[in-house]
């Protein structure tokens, strides 16, 4: 009886580890692009995306450009937010 119980525990741990690994692998590209937003575009094309932040070259230039050069994003964000509020408020 004792061996059966510990066997079950081992299976459980194995499953959790497996699911955690797969889940993390699936989310890695999102981390990669998030980190990429702080790097200069031409550097990315040359060296490719990876997971580490090169702190010495990291900057917020891209983000600043997104919010200043392309004002569209503001319209968009407020629209999505108001849509979201409507849906949340509406009793389902």
């Amino acid at each position: 009886m004792k061996t059966k119980k510990s066997g079950k525990l081992a299976v459980k741990i194995l499953m959790i580890v497996l699911m955690a690994v797969i889940g993390l692998m699936i989310l890695l590209p999102f981390w990669a692009i998030f980190v990429g937003t702080f790097q200069e575009g031409n550097m990315l094309v040359r060296y490719g995306l990876n997971l580490s932040i090169n702190l010495s070259e990291a900057n917020l230039d891209n983000w600043v450009m997104l919010f200043t050069d392309s004002g569209d994003y503001f319209t968009w964000f407020s629209t999505v937010c108001s849509l979201l509020c409507c849906r949340l408020w509406e009793p389902c």
């Binding site: 890695l28 590209p29 990669a32 990429g36 990315l44 094309v45 040359r46 060296y47 490719g48 995306l49 990876n50 997971l51």
Partner: peptide, 12 residues
């Protein structure tokens, strides 16, 4: 970009 050519790209 992840499948870039240099050794610094994620897949490499």
């Amino acid at each position: 970009l992840m499948f870039g050519e240099m050794d610094t790209a994620l897949m490499n």
